[in-house]
């Protein structure tokens, strides 16, 4: 049940991001109903939850709320990735990274180290 709602959260967020304009629960519901059976209250609950989580803002327009995304998908992704890169605080206890950042000099040294190899093995 929880997992189903979690999945619905990402589906609805994806829809909200794709509209690039504010939308009501009814708008999202109609969009979703083209692909699946879903109740108004379910969509309302999930969108309310997304509002609580700070992903959507809303304002009253007449009797219903109009929702909009807080940030673009790109900005949201950048936040997540930046967080995964921030090794400071809890170091790699959370994430083990493939590689730390490099300065241009270090990057140059790396490229030089590869020069001895034929380009065949290189991507």
């Amino acid at each position: 049940m929880m997992r189903g709602l979690g999945e619905l959260e990402s589906v609805i967020m994806d829809r909200m991001w794709s509209y690039r304009r504010p939308a009501s629960v009814r708008d999202v519901l109609e969009d979703l109903r083209r692909e699946r059976q879903i109740a108004y209250t379910t969509v309302m609950t999930v969108m309310d939850k997304l509002h609580t989580k700070g992903l959507l803002t809303r304002e009253l327009a007449g009797k219903a709320y109009i929702y909009r995304t807080v940030s673009t998908k790109e900005a949201y992704t950048a936040d997540l990735m930046r967080e995964s890169l921030a090794r400071s605080g809890n170091q790699a206890a959370t994430l083990v990274h493939f590689l730390e950042r490099l300065t241009p000099e270090e990057a140059g040294a790396l490229e030089a180290a590869l020069q001895v190899f034929p380009p065949r093995g290189r991507g």
């Binding site: 930046r82 890169l85 921030a86 090794r87 400071s88 590689l99 730390e100 950042r101 490099l102 300065t103 270090e106 990057a107 040294a109 790396l110 180290a113």
Partner: peptide, 11 residues
Amino acid sequence: SALGAGGDTAL
């Protein structure tokens, strides 16, 4: 995005 330093390990 060049956070932190220490590419020693990478090299």
